[in-house]
Structure formats: structure tokens, C-alpha cells
Amino acid sequence: MIDLLLKNASRSGVEIDKLFDLITFLVGFWFLLAEAVLFGLVFRFHRSRSPRALYVSGEEKHQKRWIAVPHVLVLLCDVVIIAGTMLVWSHVKQQLPPADAVVRIGSQQWAWVFTLPGPDGVFDTPDDIARVNELHVRSGAVYHFELTAQDVIHCFSVPAFRLKQDAVPGRLIKGWFAALEPGRYDIQCAEMCGIGHGLMAASLYVEEKEQHARWLQENAAPPRELVAFRFPNP
């Protein structure tokens, strides 16, 4: 359903969208039912149709049933949603699938710094590629990210990936994503981080395998102005 507004582009997003649809189905039913009953009762028992009200306490057993049965049904729906959401949560946030590559994400007021290990696949070597507000990844590969913040709390959010994680100064948070298809996607900061919060936009470029390898080769030397960025060691 979210797909209609913003197309999903990641592996974990598929599950989240399905969960969203499940919840929409369940709560949508209750919502429509409750609204229909509400308006129906207001219409049916308007004074013009019902000049004298009944005396119903709602305290007797056969009356309480009208609340008790929906009560149990709501609880059942809750159980279904809880089961679904636990599954999705553990897939997206808890179990990281084996990584094809790792990216370090640093955030500060008001920019993102993405560090890729470069062609050799090892961090802290001269061919590391650090880029401000620009992340290049390979389509289909599982990326682990290591997320932190320099100053205040930021939030790494890629709406098209259904991916969101706060970057907290003082801690290193790990997570994963895997893009489904090539393209350019928005990266946003989703946590209020000061007056430049609205400026913390970045781009996520998903590339095919060969294209990405070429990009890594071409950019293996770190641009000079970025050497100053200190990525805190875990």
C-alpha cells in the first residue's frame, strides 16, 4: 500500500510493507465497523425516530457480551499483529544477514559522511573512500552499516528502503540494508538536530555490480578536504 506513494527499493522494505498491509486490513475493518455503527446508531436513534430512550445499564451479562466479544476479537487481532511485527522487527533490526560489504556512516551538524573500505575491502587503509552526503552501493548486496554521530543525535533514514535508525553520539549502532534495484534515493535526517536539520539531505546511489566496481576504482583516493573528519574508533 505504501508502494503507491513511494516505491519500495530494499529487501527489508518488502516485509515492512506487507506488515503495513496486514495492519491496515485488521484495523481498517474495526475502524470502518466502529464508524458505521456509530453513525448508524446516531441515525437510527435520533429523537425523530426514537422518541423515548431505553433504560440499559450495560451491567448485565447479556449486555456485557456486546463489549466482551469485540474485546476478545480485538485482543486476537492484537496477537496477530504482535506476531507479525516481532517477526519483521527481528529480521530488520536484530538478525543481520551475512554482509557483502560494510559502510561506516558518520553524522554531524549538518552533513553525512559515508566511508566505504575501497577496492581492498578493508577499513583504515589509504584507499578508503569517504564521501560527504553521497553514498554509493551495489545493487543486491547486503550492506552492514556502522552508524554514529559526532555531536548531537541524528537519524539515518532512507524512506525508499523503509530504513530508519537514530545515530547517537557515544554509541555505534549496527544495522543492514540491501538494495533491490539501481537508482538514486533520498537520505534524510529524521531527528531534530538543530537549525540545519532541513539541510541534511544526502543521496544514495544504487549501482549495478560493474558500475559500482568502476566507481570504487575511480574514487579510491580520499578527497583532501575530508581527511579532517574524525571517525571515532569503536
Binding site: A34, L41, V42, F45, H46, S50, I67, H71
Partner: peptide, 25 residues
Amino acid sequence: LLISVPIAEMIFSFIATLYGGSITL
């Protein structure tokens, strides 16, 4: 999600109050 149960119950009770009433808007 459990908290939705008592709240739903309360709202159902409110809606049920309308049943058999003589409603003036």
C-alpha cells in the same frame, strides 16, 4: 498493543450507550 484493548473497550461502551437512545443533536 495491549493498551488498545481497554481503550477500544471504552470506545465501544460509548458507542453502545447510543443504542436505544433518543438522540438530539
